[in-house]
Nucleic acid binder design. Structure first.
Lengths: 188, 188
DNA sequence: ATTAGCTGTTGATAAATATCACCAAATCAT
DNA sequence: ATGATTTGGTGATATTTATCAACAGCTAAT
């Protein structure tokens, strides 16, 4: 049936009835090509479930350069997390890469679910654990590897990104300029 | 009374009885100066609560250089997280910086608590959320700031680290060499 | 169809950081 | 107390990466 329902079925032992109830809270959210769905300074009031496409969570540094904090892929869930948890204004923005299909779950509904359905909280905790583990690996690659090594690692682990995303987004994710990325590509 | 109990009192509405029961599962763990308490290749079977000192979670890259994935400060809890969650061998090691006082909670006990005491799971989820947020900030600083900017930020946010830890540990945490850190210090 | 903008490259150069070698001071183990 | 090890610092140089500029091919909007 629906992608979020499949994922709950696979990762929890929740009854069909409860799954239905939960999934009804994931509201379809219409997006336009490259639309910014959360702007810097706004509070991230939802977590987003990506059905199709990519969301890019990005920040801008002191001299106006863009960086990609996270890429949220199909089947994954994410948001501007520090803002979402604190319900304070976000330093990051969230933008669709191309045309996306997105569901969203509000902060209130998520917390209500966590309170009322312990099994959902366990599932949600697992999501955060996995996200945190990804973040740890990213930190490790950033402190211990050269740009070229990080590029090779990403190419090996997520080759799809290179087919589906423009090079500047990849470069912003790796924390290098698009020129450097272009040169790394032609390095043997 | 005890530090972990105080923290539970402050962050949950658990009864004194339950807090007592939970804290009894945090076992004191004797460490020697600079002792490695989890080695690379071992499974991290506990999370560690630091009563005194610092734990350093570190990795070694392909050419044998050390890096510091995380520093766990007094009053904080942590472990080699990817290994702990998966219960598979760790790529990181955990080492005491100097002389430490540490409590530890086993994987089994933690999961039992999460299952039996939903409020504990909420508390634990909050810990992971905060750890994840810290990790996000670290990623952002690594992809968007220069070594000097990262050094200044750390100096501003955690000045204590510079008094309490040797410079090479700080450098490994910033992802730079100790020589570069030494030069950044004398930069105005 | 045409223009304007976006995307990916490449070159020349500058800036940041690492590497290697060495030294002095502090700290530790015996 | 002493010898050994660790720690912090500096210089010379190499390497990595960023910056700035230019350009060709593509894409999208009018």
């Amino acid at each position: 049936m629906s992608l979020p329902a499949d994922i709950l079925r696979k990762n929890t032992t929740l009854s069909e009835k409860k799954i239905k109830m939960i999934v009804a809270l994931y509201k379809p959210f219409k997006t336009r090509r490259n639309q910014e769905i959360v702007s810097r300074g706004e509070v991230a009031r939802h977590i987003y479930f990506v059905v199709k496409g990519y969301l890019r969570v990005g920040v801008t540094n002191s001299v106006g350069h863009q960086f990609t904090r996270f890429l949220i892929e199909e089947g994954m869930v994410g948001t501007a997390f520090p803002s979402f948890v604190s319900q304070k204004p976000s330093t990051a923005s969230i933008r669709c890469v191309g045309q996306c299909e997105v569901l969203r779950l509000s902060y209130q509904d998520l917390n209500l679910l966590c309170k009322k359905v312990p099994e959902f909280e366990t599932y949600y905790r697992g999501l955060i654990e996995q996200a945190y583990i990804q973040a740890i690996h990213r930190i490790e690659s950033l402190i211990s590897m050269s740009a070229y090594e990080r590029y090779r690692l990403l190419l090996k682990e997520k080759p799809k990104l290179f087919q589906q995303l423009p090079a500047n987004v990849i470069a912003e994710y790796l924390g290098i300029t698009k020129e450097t990325l272009s040169r790394l590509k032609s390095r043997k």
